[in-house]
């Protein structure tokens, strides 16, 4: 891991030195254990802040639609898929981004660790091979990384960046065996009432902070429908009718675009299982249109194109 950090710094310095980019977007050490934080580097003297570890969970592609600069971006498998999506949606050009691709074995979900410790506080977390050593008051525990991965990392089938300008480290083995839609299928197998109950239980925890929306690389609309006041499409309360509409419309709006990077899920402070809807959308798009978002720069997003033989069984007539 340490070597990856060094390699990122070296390439960052080179790119800035040669004036190939104006800005490097990467990660630096976070202020609390088990966290890294986005970092914006514009001069070689700042490049040594850059790091890489299992806490680099944010999807930095989020910052691309804003920028006018030439950018080098540190990107995991899922982040690269988001970048592909953004290029296809004309939010950034391929020429404008230099992708520092990093094969990824999964990012750590600190909330899962916290839940296991039930209130005991971590003062320090040190990564060592496949484990993390946690220390704190009355606490010394060695945990296995693979047991605490984010849910989206557990079902990831594209750990290696599909496009890149430079790749740091060796490619990792892709998980061929995982059934990434198992939970969606289990959900679908439930009765209508059960599904509604579990969906409404989940979204009634929502405080409408919009961290899920704002962490998503594909939520870049100038004005989100929830923010519009003329007309006001949706109420401002945390009543189920309002939160449910927010979540359903959000899921529809990223259908065929979501790459299941898990950003929304990670950002939610209330622990809401946001992938239940987004993963379902992803599966349906795959079934109906044989399309997987963020895999190639060439194929057309199914909802941005029309074919006379498009499936339409799901349409209500």
């Amino acid at each position: 891991m340490l070597n990856t950090s060094v390699a990122i710094r070296d390439i960052a310095k080179k790119l800035l030195d040669e004036k190939r980019v104006d800005l490097i977007i990467g990660f630096e050490k976070g202020s609390v254990p088990l966290r890294s934080t986005p970092c914006f580097v514009r001069s070689t003297s700042e490049a040594d802040r850059l790091i890489w570890n299992v806490n680099c969970e944010n999807n930095l592609a989020k910052y691309l639609p804003k920028t006018k600069e030439r950018v080098a971006i540190v990107a995991k498998g899922c982040d690269v898929r988001s970048i592909i999506g953004l290029i296809k949606e004309n939010q950034v050009t391929r020429e404008q981004v230099f992708i520092i691709g990093i094969p990824c074995k999964g990012m750590i979900d600190r909330r899962k660790i916290e839940a296991k410790l039930d209130g005991k506080e971590i003062i320090e977390a040190e990564e060592k091979d496949d484990t993390i050593i946690l220390t704190g008051n009355n606490l010394r525990e060695i945990i296995k990384k693979e047991e605490f991965l984010h849910n989206s990392c557990k079902t990831c089938t594209h750990r290696n960046p599909v496009i890149y300008d430079v790749l740091i480290g060796d490619k990792v083995v892709e998980d061929q065996a995982v059934d990434e839609y198992r939970e969606v299928k289990e959900f679908e197998a439930q009765s209508h009432d059960e599904r509604w109950r579990s969906f409404s239980d989940e979204v009634s925890k929502c405080i409408r902070c919009y961290a899920c929306r704002n962490a998503c690389p594909f939520c870049y609309c100038q004005e989100c429908f929830v923010d519009s006041s003329q007309p006001q499409w949706i109420g401002k309360t945390t009543n189920l009718s309002d939160t449910a509409i927010f979540h359903i419309v959000r899921a529809f709006h990223i259908a065929g675009r979501c790459v299941d990077c898990g950003s929304c899920d990670r950002a939610c402070p209330m622990g809401i299982d946001l992938r239940r809807l987004t993963k379902k959308m992803e599966m349906d798009v795959k079934d109906l249109f044989h399309y997987e978002a963020g895999i190639s720069l060439e194929d057309m997003p199914p909802l941005a194109t029309f074919n006379p033989d498009d499936p339409q069984e799901f349409m209500m007539v």
Partner: peptide
Amino acid sequence: LVSEKCLGCAVCTYL
């Protein structure tokens, strides 16, 4: 500089 990474969500203010 300090706001560059801010997502503009309401986690900090609502909580």
